[in-house]
Amino acid sequence: MDFYYAPTACSQAAHILLHEAGLSFRPHAVDLFQHTLKDGSAYERINPNGYVPALLLEDGMLLTENVALLDWIAHAGDGLVPDGPLGRTRHLQMLAFLSTELQKPFVRLFFTQNDEEKAWLTETLGRRFGWIATRIEGDYLFGARFSASDAFFYVMARWAAMCGIALPGPLRTLADRIEARPAVRTVLEKEGVAPLDGAA
């Protein structure tokens, strides 16, 4: 299958999870400003929406939207979803929160030129990170096992560092623990980006 990503974008979560799951895939870096692949071809021929991530399965099915990819990869792998009768539901709840309540405000923060909006977004994001800090159930968000939510959270932690948003102590500890995982280190190297201490 073919995986389409952009370094440091939200697609980094799916990139990490593909390695965690041990799935075989062909990676393709996308220039999101030019909407092209490395060979100069138009990325919109693959994904007409023009954004990442995207996963083209061997049967020709194209999966888009980060939450959908993370859920699919987590189930294709082994042990990447929390246990229990509501394990998947709780996991989707966290993925949806990360996508709508963190990722979306971050995108606004990256591009706004309005100082008042920047201040409001920074305060809002700090509050929402604070809520996540109360949800940690063990070494990772859902206990002893790494999950897709941890991969997505890690990318948001990197974005916080880029924007100068300080994380609560438990979340910084969690981010460091995630970054120490071999799959994460592999993706950072492949995407050509610095570890979290160098993300700012």
Rank of each mutant, 00 (worst) to 15 (best):
A161C: 10
G77A: 00
A175F: 04
P168R: 04
R26W: 00
I16V: 15
A96S: 12
A6Y: 02
S147I: 09
L188P: 10
P105D: 05
G126F: 05
H28G: 09
Y154G: 08
L141F: 12
T173C: 07
H75W: 02
D176G: 11
I16K: 03
F142V: 00
E58L: 05
L125I: 15
A157L: 08
L188Q: 03
A54F: 13
G169E: 15
N114Q: 14
T112E: 07
P82E: 00
Y4P: 04
E58F: 00
D115I: 05
R108Y: 14
R26C: 03
A74M: 06
G79R: 05
E65N: 13
P82V: 01
V81L: 04
L92F: 07
P53E: 03
R135K: 08
I132H: 05
P85S: 05
W120G: 00
A54E: 09
F106I: 10
S99Q: 12
F25T: 01
D39K: 07
E117N: 10
P48T: 03
D71V: 09
E65G: 09
E58G: 06
T186Q: 12
H28S: 12
A42M: 02
R158K: 12
R185A: 13
N114T: 14
Y140C: 04
R90I: 01
E189M: 06
L57Y: 04
L63M: 15
I73Q: 11
L17V: 07
S24R: 15
M1S: 14
K38I: 01
S41T: 15
A133N: 03
E179T: 01
P182K: 02
L171K: 09
K118V: 09
V155K: 08
E65T: 10
L92E: 02
E137G: 13
W131Q: 08
P7T: 00
L70E: 13
A21R: 08
A157R: 06
G79N: 08
G126E: 05
D83L: 05
L62A: 04
P168V: 11
R128K: 15
M1H: 08
T134K: 11
E101R: 08
L63W: 10
A160R: 08
A14E: 09
L141W: 09
T124R: 15
K104W: 00
R177P: 00
Q34D: 14
D139K: 13
H15S: 01
P85F: 03
T112P: 10
D83N: 03
G84F: 03
R128I: 05
G130K: 11
T89L: 13
L57H: 11
E179H: 06
E116L: 14
G126K: 10
R135L: 07
W131G: 00
T64C: 13
G79V: 11
L69I: 07
F152R: 01
R145M: 02
V52Q: 07
E44G: 00
R128G: 05
G192N: 05
Y5F: 12
A144L: 06
